[in-house]
Design a protein around this nucleic acid. Structure first.
Ligand SMILES: [Zn+2]
Ligand SMILES: [Zn+2]
Ligand SMILES: [Zn+2]
Ligand SMILES: [Zn+2]
Lengths: 129, 129
DNA sequence: TCACTTATTGACAATGATTATCAATAGCGA
DNA sequence: TCGCTATTGATAATCATTGTCAATAAGTGA
């Protein structure tokens, strides 16, 4: 059965504290700074677990690095992400859900899924220019 | 200035022959099978070039691998991709373009870009079950 | 055609993220 | 508390991608 370890809750907490999407490496660094002696492999495992049970969202950075984020809702949603600071806004978009299904159906594709993310520069980062 | 080498045209041709998104590694393997002695680094470089001038589209696989595809049009478009065989359908969706811009604007984000891909199982692959 | 300049190539090393190993540790049920 | 075994973490292994650099060859002008 699944056991409760301080490592797992530490990862969950550290992820909750992040406003932006972060990599396993970044989170590990943060956890070390916080004084925990948690191992890198454990952070990878904990993040993979959180993602698999739907408690964390994941996406690939432009460079192919896996990024994670604790999302406020378990419901399916999308992200608007700042390219500068990583600040992220969550939102739902029923039009998109319907649209994706329709596009798949119209071309004979079944079991549709979709990757929909919007990137930009947030208001705060725009001012700093 | 940019020089024309048989390596670059070989990569372009090999990519044109692919129906699906392929990785640099896969394309290199194919080119070797075809009898060319092209180097792996050269394939990576050629693909990066093609992508930068807009003659190839790129996306990250689920595992974070960079995949490339020669697209039929230089215009901005999106993809419907079969999870089984990789077969890809290109399509435009003006609704999505407008929607993405609007979402960014509504949250104070500037210079919006977006990643929109739909995945599913194509009709051909569905039958094979 | 011919030499010359230098962009390009390719074998190989280096990087960097992620995963596999495996002995030691520590939940948790009995 | 005891025992079983899931979990951990240091480390090695994997694998895609990029950097290095001497050798090669594309393009240019004589
Ligand atoms: Zn920002
Ligand atoms: Zn959606
Ligand atoms: Zn298919
Ligand atoms: Zn678009």
């Amino acid at each position: 059965m699944k056991r409760n370890t301080w490592q797992r809750s530490a990862v969950r907490t550290a992820l909750d504290d992040q406003e932006a999407f972060v990599s396993a490496q970044q989170l590990h660094l943060q956890l070390r700074k916080d004084g925990t002696g948690i191992g890198l492999a454990t952070v990878y495992r904990a993040l993979a677990d959180l993602a698999s049970i739907g408690e964390a969202d994941t996406l690939q950075s432009e460079e192919g690095e896996a990024l994670y984020r604790a999302c406020s809702t378990g419901k399916h949603h999308h992200h608007l992400i700042c390219r500068e600071c990583g600040a992220t806004v969550e939102f739902e978009a029923n039009d998109i859900e319907e649209w994706a299904k329709r596009v798949a159906r119209e071309h004979g594709f079944s079991n549709p899924e979709h990757v929909v993310d919007v990137f930009g520069v947030c208001a705060k980062c725009s001012k700093l220019k």
